[in-house]
């Protein structure tokens, strides 16, 4: 680490948001071991997300889900050269402090883990390390950005392999942004109130037509076609959780999803990479999950 110049500035918004900019058009893959991280990097992941159990297992095994063991995170950082992300519980600022000193590149304050605070999210401005947070709609995304999130991912419903909630959330966020761009100033004041977000941020989005941070999508992406659909719906990139390592032949599926994200608008390429991938994760239909057990409703 260099600190040679007095003018060097660490942890600025531009530096935090900038890393997410560089991940665009890429696939971030959930991994629970160094061996999986190796597979993800070799397949062309743009970053890996280190966690103890993939969402499908958290869902089936139950219990409190927490930040991973630091030894596991160390082993994944040692294994790969691409950026390493890791999850902290919503509101658990000490888990975040630990992840920061471990040398993780990005923290996911994630509804996939059990929340540690049902009122407050982490004050992310307190950290040098950037955060990504989930959102199901624009208001939630803007509240997270106000708290310092440098990247947003639409939540979907993690651990299901059912892409319908991911579709709903990315459509909702982008639809609400589009609506803002057609509003006059007097309407924007009301919109800010309804979105429960600061007026300045709402006005900025109304004029630029996009979030001030990168927007990935997550939660239920299991096939190259799923990933390409998210990109066509306006995602900057895709998180794939259980969809890779809960499927047969994860190496091939991971590489196929990477290619489908780059050529998201070329059905011929997507058709080619979709061939012979073997069994996709079995999954669970979101409509079969009782509302209180849906992870996307965590966070507010």
């Amino acid at each position: 680490m260099t600190e040679s110049t007095s003018a060097e500035q660490f942890g600025s918004s531009r530096v935090k948001r900038g890393l997410a900019e560089m991940l665009k058009g890429g696939v971030i893959m959930d991994v629970v071991t160094a061996a999986q991280a190796r597979i993800a990097e070799d397949a062309g992941a743009v970053a890996v997300m280190a966690l103890e159990r993939v969402p499908a297992d958290i869902r089936s095994q139950g219990g409190v889900a927490r930040m991973s063991d630091p030894d596991l995170i160390d082993s994944i950082i040692a294994e790969v050269n691409i950026p390493v992300m890791a999850k902290a519980r919503i509101g658990h600022f000490v888990e975040a402090q630990i992840l920061e000193v471990l040398g993780v590149d990005y923290i996911d304050e994630s509804e996939v883990l059990s929340p540690a605070d049902y009122l407050n999210h982490i004050d992310k401005w307190n950290f040098t390390i950037p955060f990504v947070c989930g959102a199901t709609n624009l208001g939630e995304a803007l509240r997270r950005i106000t708290e310092g999130a440098a990247m947003i991912r639409s939540k979907g419903e993690a651990g299901t392999g059912d892409v319908s909630e991911a579709t709903k959330h990315i459509r909702t966020i982008n639809g609400e942004i589009k609506r803002l761009t057609s509003m006059s100033r007097d309407e924007l004041y009301v919109a800010a109130k309804e979105l429960q977000a600061p007026y300045e941020l709402v006005a900025e989005i109304a004029s630029t037509g996009k979030l001030p941070v990168v927007l990935f999508t997550a939660g239920g992406v299991a096939t190259p076609a799923d990933a390409a659909m998210m990109m066509q719906l306006g995602a900057d990139g895709v998180f794939v959780g259980s969809g890779i390592f809960k499927a047969g032949n994860p190496e091939q599926r991971a590489a196929a999803i990477v290619k489908a994200v780059t050529f998201y608008d070329d059905a011929k390429v997507i058709a080619d990479v979709s061939r012979g991938l073997g069994e996709a994760m079995v999954g669970i239909n979101v409509s079969d999950i009782p509302a209180p057990h849906r992870l996307a409703s965590r966070g507010w």
Binding site: M1, T5, Q9, R14, V15, G18, L19, D105
Partner: peptide, 28 residues
């Protein structure tokens, strides 16, 4: 430079581009 926490922004003197320093963002 190391992990993301070591990413930074700073001003650089680049004579080929003129006297005004270039504000540069270094990300991993």
């Amino acid at each position: 430079f190391g992990p993301q926490t070591a990413s930074f922004e700073t001003d650089l003197d680049i004579p080929a581009l003129g006297v005004k320093p270039v504000h540069a963002v270094f990300i991993r």
